[in-house]
Design a protein around this nucleic acid. Structure first.
Length: 476
DNA sequence: GTGACATTGAA
DNA sequence: TCAATGTCA
C-alpha cells in the first residue's frame, strides 16, 4: 500500500470514554485506515473548566479502563496534554492523519472544536463531529416561537416526540497505527490525577468502578434489582437509584444505550407501577438533556443568574468573600456546611456522604443546597463550586442548572417561597433515621454540634431577601 | 387535610 | 390551567 492510503484516522475522545455506541469511534474505524484514539488533557483552553478533585480521580481510572479495553482489541489509547487547539493539529501533522472524528460537546469549549473543524478542513482533512452524548441536540428542541424551552415539562414532552437513534456496536477490532507510526503517549500517572498525601480516595474506591464495564454492570443491576423500587428513589437510605450519573458524565455509557435498554424492558407491556418507574427514570435522563440545552444556550450558566432579576439578591456572603475551594475558608458557616458540622442532621449526613463517597443522594442534594442558599444566605456559586470539586458526577451543565434551580434563579425554578425544612424532609424521606445514623455516628451525643443557625428565623430572613428580587423583576 | 403563599412559561 | 421535587397555619 502506498503511504497516502496508510494515512491514519484520529478519534478525539473527550466525555465519551466508551467503545460501544460511540459514533465517532465507529465512523473512524469504518474508514479502514490505521486508527489512533487520543485523549487530550486540556486544562487551559478557552472555555475549559478545569476538573475538580473527585472528577480527576474518576478520569484517571476511566482512562486506564479504556486503554485496557482498547488493547484487548489490538489498539491503544494515546494520551497528550496541553490546549487541544494546539495539541490536536500537532498530532495530525505528526501522523499525517487523513481524518479526525469526535462526539460533540456543548460547553463554552465547543468554540475550540469549531475552530479546529474549519482549520483542519482547510488543510484537506476529513473532519466530522457526531452526536454521541445526548438523545437530542440542544438546537433540535425548540418551542412554538422557535426559542429554547425555559420549562422542563414541555421541553421533555417535545423531546420525547422524536425518535432515538439506533445504537452502534463496539468495533470488533481497533487496528493500531503501523508500528513506526505508533504515536508517543504521555504516562497517565504523570498527569497526577490521583490524590496523594493524603490519599482521600478510599471511600471512592469502595463505592465506584469507573469505566465502561462498570457502567454496563450498573445498568444491568439497576434494571434487574433496583428499578422495581424506583418509586422509593426519594428515600436516601434505600438503594433504589441507578448510580449511573458519573458514568454518564464521562460518557462510559450513552443516554441512547440507557433509553433503549429501558424500552427493552417492554415498557408498554408492564403493569402501571413499573411503567411509571421507567417513565420517571427516563425523565431524569430528560433533566440531563434539559440542563445540557440550558448550558448550550447560556455558556455562563455556572457564573451568571439565568434570571437577571436575581442579580439583586442580597447574599449574606458572596462567592468572592468565601475564597476558592481549597483555600482555608474565612467564614466558619460555609466550612461547617462543607464538613458536615452544621448541627442539622440531614444536611450533615449528606455532606459527609459526599465527602466520603464522591456522591450524594439526589433528595439530600436539594436539602443541603436549600440550606446553604436559604438558611445561610450564601451565594449558590459557593455550593456549586464545592460540588464541582467533590462530586464524581460533577457535570458542567447539570451542576449549575440544578444549583440555580434551588436558588430560584434558574430555569423552571421553584417559587421563591419554597424553602426546604431539613427536619420535615428527614421525617418524610428518612423516617427511621437510618440514613442520618449511617453518616453521623455521634448523633445524639455531646460530640454532635448544636445547629449553627435557627431554621425558622433564617427562613424568614430568606423570604425577606427574596423581596429584593421581586422588586427588581417588577421594575423591569 | 386544606388553603395560602402567588413565579412564569407554555399551550 | 398546570407545572419536579414545599411549608406553615
Amino acid at each position: 500500500m502506498s503511504r497516502s492510503e496508510n494515512r491514519p484516522s484520529v478519534v478525539w475522545l473527550r466525555n465519551d470514554l466508551r467503545l460501544a455506541d460511540n459514533p465517532a469511534l465507529t465512523a473512524a474505524a469504518s474508514e479502514d485506515r490505521p486508527l489512533v484514539v487520543v485523549y487530550i488533557h486540556d486544562e487551559t483552553g478557552d472555555g475549559i473548566r478545569p476538573l475538580g478533585s473527585a472528577s480527576k480521580w474518576w478520569l484517571h481510572h476511566s482512562l486506564a479502563a479504556l486503554d485496557a479495553a482498547l488493547r484487548k482489541l489490538g489498539g491503544q489509547l494515546t494520551l497528550r496534554s496541553g490546549p487541544a487547539a494546539r495539541v490536536l493539529p500537532e498530532l495530525v501533522d505528526e501522523l499525517d492523519a487523513a481524518s479526525v472524528h469526535w462526539n460533540r460537546r456543548y460547553t463554552a469549549a465547543r468554540d475550540i472544536d469549531a475552530e479546529l473543524k474549519s482549520s483542519l478542513r482547510e488543510r484537506g482533512l476529513t473532519v466530522e463531529s457526531h452526536q454521541g452524548n445526548v438523545l437530542n441536540e440542544p438546537w433540535q428542541i425548540r418551542n412554538g416561537q422557535g426559542e429554547p424551552y425555559r420549562v422542563f415539562t414541555p421541553y421533555w414532552r417535545s423531546a420525547q416526540d422524536r425518535p432515538v437513534r439506533e445504537l452502534w456496536p463496539a468495533p470488533e477490532a481497533v487496528e493500531p497505527g503501523w508500528p513506526e507510526r505508533s504515536p508517543a503517549s504521555d504516562n497517565l500517572t504523570d498527569w497526577n490525577l490521583l490524590p496523594t498525601r493524603p490519599d482521600w480516595a478510599g471511600g471512592l474506591r469502595e463505592t465506584w468502578t469507573p469505566g465502561e464495564a462498570g457502567a454496563l454492570d450498573l445498568l444491568d443491576s439497576f434494571v434487574a434489582d433496583r428499578l422495581a423500587d424506583y418509586h422509593r428513589r426519594d428515600e436516601p437510605a434505600v438503594d433504589a437509584t441507578s448510580g449511573l450519573s458519573p458514568h454518564l458524565r464521562f460518557g462510559e455509557i450513552s443516554p441512547a444505550q440507557i433509553w433503549h435498554r429501558l424500552r427493552g424492558t417492554g415498557a408498554s407491556t408492564l403493569p402501571t407501577a413499573a411503567r411509571s418507574n421507567v417513565a420517571k427514570f427516563l425523565s431524569e435522563i430528560g433533566w440531563r438533556e434539559f440542563s445540557t440545552a440550558l448550558l448550550f444556550d447560556n455558556p455562563r450558566l455556572a457564573e451568571d443568574s439565568y434570571r437577571p432579576a436575581y442579580n439583586a439578591f442580597p447574599w449574606g456572603y458572596t462567592v468572592d468573600q468565601l475564597g476558592a475551594v481549597d483555600e482555608p475558608a474565612g467564614v466558619s458557616e460555609v466550612e461547617a456546611w462543607r464538613r458536615g458540622r452544621t448541627g442539622i442532621p440531614l444536611v450533615d449526613a449528606g455532606m459527609r456522604e459526599l465527602w466520603h463517597t464522591g456522591t450524594m443522594h439526589n433528595r439530600v442534594r436539594m436539602v443541603v443546597a436549600s440550606f446553604l442558599i436559604k438558611n445561610l444566605l450564601i451565594d449558590w456559586r459557593a455550593g456549586e463550586q464545592w460540588f464541582w470539586d467533590t462530586l464524581v458526577d460533577a457535570d458542567e451543565a447539570s451542576n449549575p442548572a440544578n444549583w440555580q434551580w434551588v436558588a430560584g434563579s434558574g430555569a423552571d425554578a421553584a417559587p421563591y417561597f419554597r424553602v426546604f425544612n431539613p427536619g420535615l424532609q428527614q421525617k418524610k424521606f428518612d423516617p427511621t433515621g437510618e440514613y442520618v445514623a449511617r453518616w453521623i455516628p455521634e448523633l445524639g451525643t455531646a460530640d454532635y454540634p448544636d445547629p449553627i443557625v435557627d431554621l425558622a428565623e433564617t427562613r424568614r430572613e430568606a423570604l425577606e431577601a427574596y423581596s429584593a428580587v421581586k422588586a427588581a423583576s417588577a421594575s423591569n
